[in-house]
Design a binder for these strands. Structure first.
Lengths: 350, 350
DNA sequence: AATCTTTCCGTGAACGTGCACGGAATTAAA
DNA sequence: TTTAATTCCGTGCACGTTCACGGAAAGATT
């Protein structure tokens, strides 16, 4: 911006009477330079409006920056598999070459597998790490270690009460619950509705959907104080039992027309829903999993609120890459992706 | 992918017994190389799985690629101003340095201004051009000239019946009308509704909203054949007259509750709407203009269907940059951005 | 056979930065 | 004063491409 003719490291050297070696040292502040020279170079950088040439830099360094992704792994078509797709997206052809990405997956229900993944991650000697935290304590240990080695890390999906993170990319969970309730009711009074929830393990994992649930309930209570919110708990591993629970519920509440789920597994209900069609029913779930979108276009599901986990991951990686390669800090530390509403009429273009 | 150790231009030279100069010539196929050598080099490229090093390439070329954007210009906060924001977005820090962008604006109601802008554009000697076409004939002349100079161009927003374009980024107009109708009615039967339309100039400009209107009407006729669709024509330059027209309409149709507009100017109706509140009214418009979003969060407008013109432009520029810098062709030629539904409950995170 | 074209190809200097190496300048220790 | 340690700094090669320049080889023309 300052000078039209892009100034180089050599210009700074000439201007200060130093050599490019010294300039290089202050640019990467790795010491071995006197206070006087340091100040002179800094001033020259300001005056000339110097900006490093990324291409020359990348070329000289010979690439090889590793960004590690520490993220749960699930079945193909699942939420985390969808998110994993964002890694390719981030490897934009123009930006690639210099950075590579490695995915260290772990079982979201098993702390030990996280620790194992973290060890492997550690061995790969990454320049930056993306973390989707599931277990608070274990993750805090990891981030502490990263901080002590000055390795930047960004959170995705869930944020921990940790202060050293470079950035966070996620969804505004409370608001997403609010939005979900609005989509479910269409803004029209409802007497009773059903929320299907998944039984959580006893382990104290971080569960972001509690905020979503709060937003949902607040909307209902604010708009329709008389509405009764029923709950049915299911176990994803035991579908027959889950369907039996639904049968039982609708036996005693045949008039309930609205069904919501707060995680990405609404597709689990689809077979049952399609065997039990109901006039005027509305079903709202979350996230653009392939199975969910199919149910959407068949009309079984009315709407999906999407947070695009792949975009979140891609943005996280990009922020990390900019930090590592250019030393640039993200504009905002906490970034909330926008919530998209998917219906059968706009699902085709996803 | 083929070889782990990234192969270079020099590897190819050694393998073929030629020199890097020759290899370079076939890589950019600018002739001056015998058939035999050409084939040999091509084979070696295949065998080694050679991929050019973008950084070295950019560095050597010394940057300075110009992408010209030939796009209408309107008032601040207008549709095209929003789109223009995508230019910055495209200048991703990691990708920048090599390409610069220049915007050549024109008056969307004046063919002559397009021609003038095209001349300026031509003088800037661009390596690629993004075009948002408004006038068919004049634009076809421009693209013909571009083709004769082998300058790639991509269409944005509207596509012309032109075969030489590199890519197109736009919205599925017909489907967006369909979606709009669904959002307006909520899927529930409606007896009558109002469409507010803008008087078009007589000039034969390309007007993509006719497709949108078709999609809208088809939805209505398919779902609610008894519904009457009323039209009110307004002139954006004469708001008082427009409001008078609305007064007149609702005088004779007091029961009509749903209002739609097919372009981005729904905000023009907002003052009138807020002076004439009506219980149970639904208003649906298009595009995330600042004024529209404010009306949304106040509840005056019920929903907006957004096509993110800025993203379209950013994607277009990116595709062009990849073509110019890397010689890479986009995966798909016709790209439809997804349609986002905005309500007052998810507008905050845009 | 000599000269002139034409076609093809190799050479070498940039591009701007990173980094290892060694050496100068300064200060401390003898 | 000499030597050793320390702090600071300059030199020069490497990274993989691009491109202008000049020249060899082959063919065409006398």
């Amino acid at each position: 911006m300052a000078n039209k003719a892009k100034s180089t490291i050599l210009d700074i050297a000439r201007l200060t009477g130093l050599s490019k070696g010294t300039v290089d040292r202050v640019l990467h502040n790795r010491g071995e330079v006197s206070r006087k020279s340091y100040d002179a170079v800094m001033k020259a950088i300001q005056d000339l409006g110097y900006e490093p040439n990324v291409y020359a830099s990348m070329l000289a360094r010979g690439g090889s920056h590793l960004i590690a992704v520490l993220m749960p792994e699930d079945e193909p078509g699942g939420f985390w598999s969808l998110a994993a797709g964002g890694m390719e997206k981030a490897l934009d052809p123009l930006a690639s070459g210099g950075v590579s990405i490695e995915h260290f997956g772990y079982d979201p229900t098993d702390v030990e597998s996280l620790k194992a993944a973290a060890r492997k991650m550690w061995d790969s000697n990454p320049s930056g790490v993306v973390i989707a935290p599931m277990f608070r304590e274990a993750t805090l240990q990891i981030t502490a270690a990263l901080r002590s080695k000055d390795i930047p890390y960004v959170f995705v999906d869930t944020k921990l009460d940790d202060l050293g993170y470079l950035a966070f990319f996620g969804m505004p969970m409370y608001r997403s619950g609010y939005l979900c309730a609005d989509q479910l009711t269409g803004g029209l009074p409802v007497k009773s509705l059903l929320v299907v929830r998944v039984q959580r393990d006893v382990q104290r994992m971080s569960d972001p959907t509690v905020d979503r649930r709060a937003g949902f309930l607040d909307y209902i209570h604010e708009h329709f104080p008389d509405c009764v919110v029923h709950n049915v708990l299911i176990n994803p591993a035991d579908i027959p039992a889950a369907e039996a629970a639904l049968d039982e519920f609708f036996e005693s509440h045949p008039d309930t027309r609205q069904i919501a789920m707060f995680n990405s597994r609404i597709h689990l209900l689809v077979p049952w829903l399609e065997r039990h069609p109901q006039r005027g029913r509305r079903v709202v779930g979350f996230d653009n999993l392939e199975a969910n979108m199919q149910a959407l276009s068949r009309g079984t599901v009315s709407a999906l609120v999407c947070q695009h986990p792949d975009d979140q991951l891609a943005l996280a990686i990009k922020a990390l890459a900019e930090r590592i390669v250019l030393g640039k800090y993200p504009a905002r530390r906490d970034n909330f992706v926008h919530m998209d509403i998917l219906t059968r009429y706009n699902v085709d273009f996803y």
